[in-house]
């Protein structure tokens, strides 16, 4: 392995890693928003909203994220959506991971014992109050770990935007292969940087989970 080469190019990879981190943060925030809206729709009292939520989830989980990204970035202009590659990447991947987060959040909410909501309602709380004060705080604790799994997948998933030429880690690795002819070193370096980002994020999720855990 050419360690000298790695040391020489690695500052450029760090810059690219910053873009990967930006993409991760933005897509995850957008995903959480879409997930909360999606879960609300899927658990709604109204049939039309439930249908809308289910359609959202089934489309975005049922087709490759890469196709969704191409559809938005290359197909978008045809229907009047003009986005640069970075914007398309954030929106495409954020809405995509939001579908997975919808199911994660919905799962955590319906896992809360029905007796919890009932007990709150018998005290006189409204549906909305019972949800906000009793069901949601418990569901939030329950969804931290599985959302962590979604987040982990999403960080790695940002690599897809290399296909629409966003200069992030994977794209940078490919570009440097073009000039160095050292694919092993370039992909190895990119892989290590992904691992660092994911390990730190994983620790953060574990910390948050521990912090809100109830005493047993």
């Amino acid at each position: 392995m050419d360690t000298e080469l790695i040391l020489k190019v690695y500052p450029y990879f760090l810059e690219a890693a910053v873009v990967t981190i930006e993409l991760s943060i933005l897509t995850i925030v957008l995903g959480l928003i879409c997930g909360a809206l999606g879960a609300t729709a899927r658990l709604s009292r109204f049939k039309a909203l439930r249908f809308l939520g289910a359609a959202y989830v089934s489309f975005f989980r049922g087709t490759p994220a890469l196709i969704q990204l191409f559809l938005l970035y290359f197909g978008g202009p045809q229907i009047g959506i003009q986005l640069d590659a970075f914007e398309a990447g954030v929106i495409g991947l954020g809405v995509n991971i939001g579908a997975y987060m919808t199911e994660t959040m919905r799962g955590a909410i319906i896992a809360i014992d029905k007796g919890q909501g009932e007990a709150a309602r018998t005290l006189g709380l409204s549906r909305e109050q019972a949800f906000r004060k009793v069901v949601l705080p418990q569901a939030l604790r329950l969804m931290i770990r599985p959302l962590g799994v979604n987040i982990n997948a999403q960080i790695k998933g940002t690599a897809l935007v290399s296909a629409i030429s966003v200069v992030e880690l994977t794209y940078t690795a490919q570009r440097y292969i073009g000039s160095t002819y050292k694919p092993f070193e370039m992909f190895f370096l990119a892989g290590v940087l992904y691992l660092v980002i994911i390990t730190i994020t994983g620790k953060g999720v574990a910390y948050l989970d521990r912090k809100v855990r109830l005493p047993a």
Partner: peptide, 24 residues
Amino acid sequence: YEKHINQMRQEIGMVFQHFNLFPH
């Protein structure tokens, strides 16, 4: 009805087999 029943339920206490205390 929602308003009315929430008011009525404040006057009717209920105790369940499985307690249903709020664990959080």
